[in-house]
């Protein structure tokens, strides 16, 4: 293998950050699914999960009206004042200004936007950067970008990293979330390595994120674990705390609690906050509300008591 070849770059990166045994990861995360969260700890976990939701709509058929409705839901998911608002709404760049209009400027709910030619990222860098700037200008607090998976898989790691750095420069004060699109990276080795590539060029408080929600495989406990471990190792090595956002596929309250248990046992209490952990989800929110109500009333709840279930993710 030539020292400067793309494959050598990947090999060097694996060598630096270490590899992952996939069966081992899956056995580790299977233990999270056997944790039993009851009573007060369950309510606390459910509310924590609500506060971490990036309530998302990413559909071709999105309209200003749909986004406005989503924003209302985000601000006040439930009439119970004990239920917090969600962390953010997540919309396409064209919808950012509508979201801003709906939420106003003085709001706890942040606006995240999937810029950079989401979901494929297959647009010229110049176009992608312009999109980022436009979304921020329209009022986005957070930019969810996609990495260049093609370049990664071709071993052009510098290109991948330079592009992240360029987006990072373009997003101004916004928080950046770097979507690895784990299903296209395929292996845990790649997911871990790509996590490090991203973390090395983003800022403290930025996030790495599993997926766009637009491919067949999205967030799983396995890839969540690999990324949490990457965040942990990076933090212990550099002191820089990066956040984590699993996205897509988390539809039930039970699943979200399992993801939170992973956070609790891997990164600890400091990550049990929406400043460092998010769920990219839509249907999840209503299931969380249902389960909170079930805990309160002792009766299982029919789904149609809960409004505005978004469809994507």
């Amino acid at each position: 293998m030539l020292a400067n070849s793309p494959s050598a770059a990947l090999a060097r990166l694996f060598d630096e950050v270490g590899t992952v045994d996939c069966v081992g990861v899956e056995e580790r995360v299977a233990k999270y699914t056997t944790r039993s969260i009851k009573k007060a700890s369950k309510v606390k976990g459910l509310k924590l999960a609500v506060s971490m939701v990036d309530l998302t709509t990413l559909e071709g058929k999105d309209t200003p009206g749909k986004v406005a409705s989503l924003c209302r839901k985000a601000l006040r998911p439930h009439e119970d004042p004990g239920v917090p608002s969600v962390a953010a709404v997540c919309v396409y760049p064209a919808m950012v200004r509508h979201a801003r209009k709906a939420l106003g400027s003085d709001t706890a709910v942040r606006i995240a936007s999937v810029a950079t030619a989401f979901p494929s990222g297959q647009a010229p860098l110049k176009t992608r950067l312009a999109e980022v700037k436009a979304a921020v200008a329209d009022g986005a607090d957070e930019i969810d970008m996609v990495i260049n998976r093609g370049a990664y898989l071709a071993g052009e790691l510098a290109e991948v990293q330079d592009e992240i750095a360029a987006v990072s420069a373009a997003r101004g004060d916004a928080t950046l979330k770097v979507i690895l699109e784990v299903s296209e990276l395929e292996t845990y080795d790649n997911i871990r390595a790509a996590s490090f590539l991203a973390m090395r060029v983003i800022r403290e408080g930025d996030f790495i994120k599993t997926s766009t929600g637009k491919t067949s495989l999205n967030a799983t406990l396995g890839n969540n674990q690999v990324m949490l471990e990457a965040i942990r190792d990076f933090y212990l090595d550099t002191g820089v705390a990066i956040g984590m956002k699993p996205a897509g596929g988390i539809r039930t309250a039970k699943q979200s609690l399992q993801f939170l248990i992973a956070v609790k046992e891997t990164l600890g209490d400091a990550w049990l906050t929406n400043e460092r952990y998010r769920f990219g989800a839509s249907a999840l929110l209503n299931d969380l509300l249902r389960q909170i109500e079930t805990q309160k009333t002792g009766a299982y709840q029919a789904p149609y008591y809960f409004s505005d279930a978004a469809e994507s993710y």
């Binding site: 039993s36 969260i37 700890s41 369950k42 609790k264 046992e265 209490d269």
Partner: peptide, 11 residues
């Protein structure tokens, strides 16, 4: 350092 405390304790 990581903090493994009781922020979210299990019943």
């Amino acid at each position: 350092e990581l903090i493994f405390g009781d922020l979210w304790e299990f019943d």
